[in-house]
């Protein structure tokens, strides 16, 4: 039996599931709240998992795909007046639950259950950039600063062409009246002038003048690359996610030079990632810049325009693990 850990809204998981079912692979898809630890048997080294109404023995699971989202728990409401204490208890419950889940993930690892993806280690942008650099990939000049003066100097050194983006994940906030999505944004001189002398530490990067961007899905040593001509549309020039349908960006299959693939492979190995969605850009000189890798990124947007059938490959891979 194959275990897919995902979230309800992930369409990519549905598509991979279709292939799994087509191949008659026995598979369970557990979204955020679907899985619980029912029992740990220390004498015989197995865990009983509660999946919806079923009980599944961990030794029955032959492969795991860590697609997206960790297993979650709906915490009970706490009737304590003291808000400080209440929050501390909530936090503690969350830590307790996280430890259980970490244990489960570790159990699969320690018992050599093959997998695609990984929730245990997650080096984010900052580490990724340094590891990419160590493997002789170009990265844009990058600083994290809280000082206006330092930012101004960086701005000057980058030929007055810089951007800012999140250090961790991009912010996403949805409420009834307000939707905020964190994008990569250009930073102008006016914007810097209006900043106070110190501010919250933020990431700034040299804005590489790009010819096109690359989205590269990596799976077990193989690269599925796509070029996006984001410069045709003013809206997608800085952040391709802002693209609209009016002037759709050309998205075509791309073959990375072998040398770049090799450097990326070393980077992914060092990051302990067997899969992920890599962002790169190619500048006017034809140089390749590594931006970041999302370990559980979307690949449907690469698979369908390039006709790669990555979803089918993943189903085949899961079956063969």
């Amino acid at each position: 039996m194959i275990l897919i850990l995902s979230e309800k809204s992930d369409i990519t998981t549905n598509q991979v599931l279709d292939w799994c079912i087509g191949y008659q692979t026995s598979v369970i898809r557990a979204n955020a709240y679907d899985l619980k630890i029912a029992h740990i048997d220390y004498s015989n080294n197995y865990i009983l998992l509660k999946y919806k109404k079923e009980i599944i023995k961990s030794t029955k699971i032959k492969a795991v795909w860590y697609r997206r989202a960790r297993i979650k728990y709906k915490y009970p409401s706490i009737s304590i007046e003291n808000n400080q204490l209440k929050n501390r208890i909530k936090q503690h419950l969350h830590e307790e639950w996280s430890e259980m889940i970490r244990f489960l993930e570790q159990w699969f690892k320690n018992n050599s259950v093959p997998s695609i993806g990984n929730y245990l280690l997650k080096d984010r942008k900052l580490t990724q950039l340094s590891i990419a650099k160590q493997n002789s990939l170009h990265i844009p000049n990058t600083i994290i600063t809280a000082q206006k003066s330092e930012l101004l100097l960086f701005f000057k050194n980058c030929k007055k062409n810089i951007i800012t983006k999140d250090i961790g994940c991009s912010l996403s906030f949805i409420s009834d009246h307000l939707i905020i999505d964190g994008y990569t944004e250009e930073v102008s001189k006016e914007f810097i002038d209006n900043l106070s002398d110190t501010f919250f530490p933020s990431l700034f990067q040299e804005n590489i003048v790009k010819v096109y961007e690359l989205r590269i899905f990596f799976l077990k040593d193989r690269f599925y690359s796509m070029a996006i001509f984001s410069q045709q549309n003013e809206k997608s020039r800085i952040d391709v996610r802002k693209n609209d349908d009016e002037i759709p960006n050309r998205r075509v299959p791309y073959q990375l030079p072998k040398e770049i693939e090799h450097k990326l492979l070393l980077t992914m190995k060092k990051l302990n990632l067997d899969t992920g969605s890599i962002d790169m850009i190619v500048d006017t000189k034809g140089d390749y810049y590594f931006l970041e890798v999302n370990p559980s990124g979307q690949f449907g947007m690469v698979s369908s325009p390039c006709n790669y059938y990555i979803e089918r490959t993943i189903a085949q891979e899961l079956q063969q693990l």
């Binding site: 045709q232 791309y254 006709n307």
Partner: peptide, 23 residues
């Protein structure tokens, strides 16, 4: 918008025109 110009045509392989369906 049917073509684009590039110095690296070797990076742009023709698309595989395969078709498949799970069921």
């Amino acid at each position: 918008n049917c073509v684009f110009f590039t110095d690296h045509p070797e990076c742009f392989p023709a698309m595989n025109l395969q078709w498949d369906y799970p069921y």
